[in-house]
């Protein structure tokens, strides 16, 4: 069975149907792309998958468990981490602190040893900080550890947000436009990182408008348009699918 099963998801906003019966699945260890024109419902779907918003109807199963009715923090604790399209960092914290805060699910920082200032508390802190530094290094921000998140460049912010998500050691990583606004050099770097993560067994579902990034990186792609899946398959099949071409380019009525 697939790691993530999405079955007939419907999401209404008042009279507007943002998602109209979405079905697809994401296999363990794959890099799955979610593409579609603006307003197709991609971010709405990601919000449902991460528990930030409930679906109007339909089911989501993660590792065999129904998660569509769970609050976001419980979905996260099952091993789903995400980034946001409009980057949600902790601006007043340093890069290192952002990643340390992201360790909520993986680090135990018990209160009592901390209150008594036991050596064990300091030892744990030291260990977690080392972990956080190596996570920062994975996204190439090891030299920015002491810089506040609000002073980072746009591309660095996106990479820091990925690092914070990785600190939770997720099984499924949801990325909402991970390379939007990045320079080509950074895009290659992020693509390489995602490949390595998938190689380590992490499953990745990403939304992206950068087509060459999606086409070269993803093993499978799902295309959404007006809240419905119009195609699912390998990059090759999807890019040749007539409905996809129609959604992106329109049809030539004259021919």
């Amino acid at each position: 069975m697939a790691l993530l099963e999405i079955r007939s998801i419907i999401r209404m906003f008042g009279g507007l149907c943002a998602l109209n019966g979405v079905d697809f699945s994401v296999e363990e260890g794959e890099i799955h792309g979610l593409i579609g024109p603006n307003g197709a419902g991609k971010t709405t779907l990601l919000n449902i998958l991460s528990g930030m918003a409930p679906p109007s109807s339909g089911q989501v199963q993660f590792a065999g468990r129904d998660i569509h009715a769970l609050p976001a923090y419980q979905v996260a604790s099952l091993g789903v981490a995400r980034t946001f399209q409009n980057i949600r960092l902790f601006p007043a914290m340093t890069c290192l602190e952002n990643v340390i805060a992201g360790q909520h699910l993986t680090a135990s920082r018990p209160l009592l040893p901390r209150l008594l200032q036991l050596p064990s508390a300091w030892r744990l802190d030291h260990e977690y900080e080392k972990d956080a530094r190596s996570t920062l290094a994975r996204v190439g921000l090891e030299n920015r550890a002491r810089v506040r998140a609000q002073s980072l460049s746009y591309g660095e912010r996106r990479r820091l947000e990925i690092a914070r998500a990785l600190a939770a050691r997720p099984r499924l990583l949801l990325l909402d436009e991970p390379v939007a606004g990045m320079r080509q050099g950074e895009v290659t770097q992020v693509a390489e990182l995602i490949r390595i993560l998938a190689g380590e067994g992490m499953t990745i579902l990403l939304i992206e408008h950068n087509m060459s990034f999606v086409m070269t990186l993803c093993s499978r792609i799902t295309v959404l348009n007006f809240g419905q899946v119009i195609a699912t398959g390998t990059p090759d099949t999807v890019s040749r699918h007539p409905h996809v071409i129609e959604a992106y380019l329109g049809v030539d009525k004259s021919s």
Binding site: Y73, A81, R88, F90, A101, L105
Partner: peptide
């Protein structure tokens, strides 16, 4: 750390697994 995360961005805090 949970308090600080919530103060900085409550939505992101939820997504990180903070109740």
């Amino acid at each position: 750390w949970s308090f600080a995360s919530i103060r900085e961005d409550e939505t992101a805090a939820k997504a990180m697994g903070i109740n």
